[in-house]
Amino acid sequence: MSNTQYYNPQVGSLYDAMQHSIKRIGIIQTNMQNFNTVGFKTVLPDSVLFSETLKDVFRDESQGAFMPTQQKLDLALSNPNAFFLVEGEDGPVRSRDGQFHVNEEGKIVDIQKRELVILDQDPEKPVAAAYTRGADMKIDKDGIVRIDGDVYGRVAIDFESKGPGDQAFVLQGKLEASNVDLQENIVKLMQVKRHIDTVQGVLSMELSVDKTLVETYGRNV
């Protein structure tokens, strides 16, 4: 809401400032509630502008810590610009979520049941079947899948914007944790809270001035 709609522009500005701070609290809250979401990227609370919606904010794309899981189909990527390819409804789509498993149809899928794209796979020797029978499956840093020492295929990796020398390593048995820093978010929450307190104080003062003016002049009209 623009402050021009208020009878008193100062009150409008204060209201806008408060709305802005409340938006920032919403972002801090989103961060905190996703601190244990696989691969979640921190939303930057300071990036929200007055006129923008929460969809327009920026994210901290830095790498989250790698959590060891020991699961052979848990994969992480070392480069924040890199993605796995999974089969979407209209062809391959990018995904950073590396938690895969073999489904009932014997396909390697992510938790949204989208199949992981494995290149150079022999249809007669599917990776999933070897994994299911408990074969020794190793995926090296280049995404090459080896079962009992033999190459069975390569995990497809795509880049958002690949520059010269850009590389991404596949890490088997690890998942990327969220990069949310709880302590930092609590500090930001306190800062926003203080800001709102200040705005509320000024708003209260402004309203009491208005009230006094109305009472004083109103009595003499």
């Binding site: 996703n34 696989v38 938790i111 949204q112």
Partner: peptide, 19 residues
């Protein structure tokens, strides 16, 4: 238990670690 951000909202995935 792991939590995942998806286009359909938050998804919870539970599994036993058969290690």
């Amino acid at each position: 238990i792991s939590f995942h951000e998806t286009l359909d909202g938050m998804k919870t995935y539970e599994r036993r670690q058969f290690i």
